[in-house]
Amino acid sequence: MPILEGKELHIIGFLCNWCSYGGADTAGVGRFVQPTDLRIIKTPCTGRINPLFIMRAFLNGADGVLVSGCHPRDCHYSQGNFFARRRLEVLRALLPVVGIAPERFAYTWVSASEGQRWKTVVERFTEQIHALGPIPAFADPGRIETCLRGQANPYGGSHALTA
């Protein structure tokens, strides 16, 4: 994947067709300039996104993965984003276990009319990934450190993974 060396990182976005893909289109129509790193994969609904797609992306070297769908209660399929939210919360808890900083993953809601909001989401997430830098290779000791730190365990210190 030919990213602009030194400037861009590998960021993959999974967007639902009805809200967020439309929101990204609205941002385009409104010419809201954004960083160029993100590549978007369209899915019918966030409920179609298997968390293992995201895991696969990280294992294959993606530096960041962003998921965006319809706002809760506004899903085109009425419940898809609720399913997505549950699955993605579990995924987030799992990421540090396998040595991936959970900050490399985010999910959010952007409606088809929120072009401005989409721009902000892309800017913030790209900035966040650039602050983390490229994802460490598997053999990298930094990766193991992330495992051991368990820093982003959402359930707090008592469950934190320690050596």
């Binding site: 861009e8 289109d25 300039v33 590549r39």
Partner: peptide, 27 residues
């Protein structure tokens, strides 16, 4: 491959845009 709304209208850097467009065609 959506290289207008998601690429040419939101990116200013022609080199970066071209790379992104190639990726979108690739997928």
């Amino acid at each position: 491959a959506n290289i207008r709304e998601h690429v040419s209208w939101v990116g200013k850097d022609r080199t970066a845009n071209t790379g992104k467009a190639i990726d979108l065609v690739r997928i």
